[in-house]
Design a protein around this nucleic acid. Structure first.
Length: 271
DNA sequence: ACGCTCTCCTGGCCGC
DNA sequence: TGCGGCCAGGAGAGCG
């Protein structure tokens, strides 16, 4: 589900609803997400106040007194703020309960999510240590991608999805950005020109920005905090469109398996 | 270091 | 209607 735009959409949805709230308790209904949930959370959290909800890569950072919660939505995670008395549904694994009677409810069918407490600044956690630059900041440039890619044989699509290179580009937006930049996803990263990387860096920023503006992309179950889907799906040009005509040239969109992930591209527009 | 595969988990869909 | 197989928005682990 969530790539950077969906995580950012989630952040913007919940931040005003949980900022400055006091945590009264936490309810853990499963022992284990991608990492085991620490039962100590029930002792650590009560009484702490939330100061900010930030995002780094696809992680959400909920800053509190003395530390912060690090949250990753995995493939299928979803966060909503609801009254704590709301009926618990299937896969509602965690409630962060506030003293105002509401709770932040974490639902994750596939249990690929992560939730853990970090002492001090959550940005210093090892999970975040090796991450690449934020694509929406100015530090993602064509020059950077070009330099990092020299002598790399990996296909450019899995290359730009590597969070150590640049964060936030997942399977949907990787295909979309490569289409917009006119680059075939299976080309070796090291063989792509500086000019193409300039374009690609720009298109990554562009497509992520547009997706955030649309509230993210809903394929199956992603929901914004108000329960509405993300509307960017209508603007996808290649993802999920195998066999359909290219919006630019009418060629049939091709689907190909690359690094175990479905990839979509136009054989005419992308070279 | 790099490139590749497997793995965690559940649900939905497709074909038989 | 049931069942097996495959696929799904992520990413860490382990292998050669």
């Amino acid at each position: 589900m969530p790539e950077l735009p969906e995580v950012e959409t989630t952040r913007r949805g919940i931040a005003p609803l949980i900022n400055n709230k006091i945590i009264q308790g936490i309810i853990l209904r499963t022992a284990k997400l991608r990492r085991p949930l620490d039962p100590e959370l029930t002792n650590i959290l009560p009484g702490r106040k939330i100061h900010a909800v930030e995002r780094r890569a696809k992680y959400l950072l909920v800053r509190c007194d003395g530390g912060g919660l690090l949250l990753h939505l995995g493939m299928s995670g979803n966060l909503r703020v609801v009254p704590a008395s709301t009926t618990v549904g299937r896969h509602d694994h965690v409630d962060l309960v506030f003293s105002d009677g509401n709770c932040l409810r974490f639902n994750d069918p596939r249990k690929f999510g992560v939730l853990l407490w970090t002492v001090g600044d959550p940005l210093t956690h090892p999970l975040l240590a090796g991450l690449g630059p934020e694509p929406l900041a100015d530090d993602l440039t064509g020059d950077y991608l070009y330099r990092k890619s020299r002598s790399r044989k990996i296909a450019v699509k899995p290359f730009i999805m590597d969070q150590k290179l640049v964060v936030g580009v997942g399977n949907i937006y990787a295909s979309e950005a490569l289409f917009r930049a006119g680059v075939r996803p299976d080309r070796p990263a090291g063989k792509i020109s500086r000019r193409s990387y300039d374009l690609l860096a720009e298109e990554i920023r562009q497509v992520l920005g547009e997706a955030i503006a649309a509230g993210g992309t809903t394929i199956n179950d992603f929901r914004q905090n108000d329960g509405k889907p993300g509307y960017f799906r209508q603007q996808l040009r290649v993802y999920g469109r195998a066999g359909e005509p290219c919006m630019a040239c009418e060629s049939r969109i091709i689907s190909q398996r690359l690094g175990q992930r479905s990839t979509y591209y136009c054989p005419q527009c992308q070279k």
